[in-house]
Structures are given as C-alpha cells and as structure tokens.
C-alpha cells in the first residue's frame, strides 16, 4: 500500500527522504478501526468504505510525518509562535470593559434552528 503513495510523476527533493522513511511492504499503519476511533474523537461519521479509504490515505500521511522521528531534537525548545525566534512576544491584555451592544437576532439568523432566543439542538442528555 505504501508503495502506491510513493508513485510520483515528477520528483521533488522531499521524495527521496520520504522514500527512505517508508520501506516497501510495511503493513498499513492505520486500520479502519483506528480511523473509526479517530473519527469518533473528531465527531465525523464515516461509513465502512470511507474508513478503509481513509486508513490507506492516513497511513501514507503517517509515513510522511514519521520522518520527524529521525531528527535529534534533544535540548531544542518547541517553537509555538514563529516570532519567538527573534522577539519575546507575550500576550497583550485587554482592559476589563464590557461592551453590551450584542445583536442577538443577527446571531440567531444564522442558526439552523432557534426559538425564544435559544439555539435549539436535539435533546441533551446529561
């Protein structure tokens, strides 16, 4: 399966690296059940055929991102905000002033279902 993902019409420098990380004939990293578990976590309904298809595709993507495992990052701080490399940026703070003007009707106009100022959903079970 993984070999299929690596069939490229044109090559790019990334591909050589990707090839090294993906020996041929490795079993698929994701099975349809894994996809169903992830899909539940992400609240996306998937049917059987879709799960199988996504399992193949995500296995290919996993092969790509698994290249990261080969990088030695000991003593490297994660970079969450790009400009942290050059400037220490910190969160700006807002003054505590309330702005009461809220156009509820404009907000509710986009709702799939609304009543009495509320967004309606199928019954929530606690």
């Amino acid at each position: 399966m993984r070999g299929e993902i690596l069939t490229f019409r044109r090559s790019a420098p990334g591909i050589a690296l990707a090839r090294r990380a993906l020996p041929p004939n490795v079993p698929m990293a994701f099975q349809p059940d894994d996809i169903r578990r992830l899909a539940r976590l992400a609240r996306i309904a998937v049917d059987g055929g879709e799960a199988a298809h996504l399992a193949r595709e995500l296995s290919g993507i996993l092969g790509l991102i698994d290249q990261l495992q080969a990088v030695n990052t000991a003593h490297v701080e994660p970079l969450a905000h790009p400009l942290d490399v050059v400037m220490a940026s910190t969160q700006r703070l807002r003054d505590d002033r309330a702005e009461p003007a809220i156009d509820r009707e404009a907000h509710l106009a986009n709702a799939p279902q609304a009543e009495g100022g509320l967004f309606l959903v199928p019954r929530v079970l606690e």
Binding site: I65, V71, T73, V76, L79
Partner: peptide, 10 residues
C-alpha cells in the same frame, strides 16, 4: 517534535 523541528528550521 514538530514544534522542535520548527525551531530548527527557523
């Protein structure tokens, strides 16, 4: 790990 590699790239 990706965020660490991100720093190396930057």
């Amino acid at each position: 790990q990706a965020q660490r590699v991100r720093r190396l790239i930057a």
